[in-house]
């Protein structure tokens, strides 16, 4: 079953796929963290319009399948006469937009758990609402939500396999290709699993260490 011949013969494809997965994940992690934080701030804002935008975003995006979000980016633009978005881009965008909804919920929970006195002290000293968010509330909120956000980052890595569905030149895409070329149905995917572990296990360990460090510093 474990035919290492496949790994060595198609090593370049695997590396290409691994590189694309890593790039997609880095972009999606950074993008969803920023977007999720913005949505979270919208959701707790006292401005009604922002509030509605935030709530709608979260409730729509997190309640439809990731595959649909990716298809949205992949299939819709040509329908509206726009130029097509390639598989890698639409997969990465889909991952970003989808995961941002979950990160927004986590960050919102973090913001709410920061004691009210913190923003009162900051506002009383003349800081604006946004300065208070940036310097006082969000830094404390992020510390609280490292575990759930870390989970979302891991989910991004695993969910990135969706790129294979839209020809995103990721590990799954190449495994499909190898499989159809060699008529070997299982082994090519086994190596994909292995490469995913190479990506996720270090993230897992890193998050554990970060959690431990933060709990000590407070």
């Amino acid at each position: 079953m474990l035919d290492f011949h496949i790994l060595t013969k198609y090593f370049d494809w695997y590396m290409e796929g691994l590189g694309n997965v890593a790039l997609a994940c880095l972009l999606a992690i950074a993008g969803s963290f920023v977007l999720g934080t913005v949505i979270a701030v919208f959701r707790i804002s006292s401005i009604r319009l922002l509030n509605v935008v935030g709530v709608t975003y979260v409730e729509v995006i997190r309640n439809i399948p990731l595959l649909l979000v990716v298809y949205g980016f992949y299939l819709l633009p040509p329908v509206f006469g726009l130029s097509a978005v390639d598989g890698f881009k639409s997969g990465t965008l889909g991952l970003t937009v989808y995961t941002a909804a979950f990160i927004a919920e986590a960050v919102r929970a973090g913001i709410i758990s920061v004691p009210k006195g913190q923003s009162e002290a900051a506002r009383a000293s003349g800081l604006t609402y946004l300065q208070t968010m940036r310097h006082i509330i969000l830094p404390q909120a992020f510390r609280i939500v490292v575990p759930p956000i870390g989970n979302q980052f891991l989910n991004i890595v695993k969910n990135s396999a969706i790129l294979g569905v839209v020809a995103g030149f990721d590990l799954m895409y190449y495994a499909d290709k190898i499989s159809s070329k060699t008529y070997i149905t299982f082994t090519p995917y086994l190596f994909v699993g292995m490469f995913y572990l190479v990506l996720t296990v270090p993230i897992s360990i890193g998050l554990k260490l970060l959690e431990r460090r933060l709990s000590q510093s407070n």
């Binding site: 004691p115 006195g117 913190q118 009162e120 002290a121 900051a122 003349g126 510390r143």
Partner: peptide, 16 residues
């Protein structure tokens, strides 16, 4: 608010 300094019962120092 720049003209006021405020001190609270629970101190409200920034822990981070």
């Amino acid at each position: 608010r720049r003209d006021f300094g405020m001190v609270f019962q629970q101190f409200n120092l920034y822990p981070h």
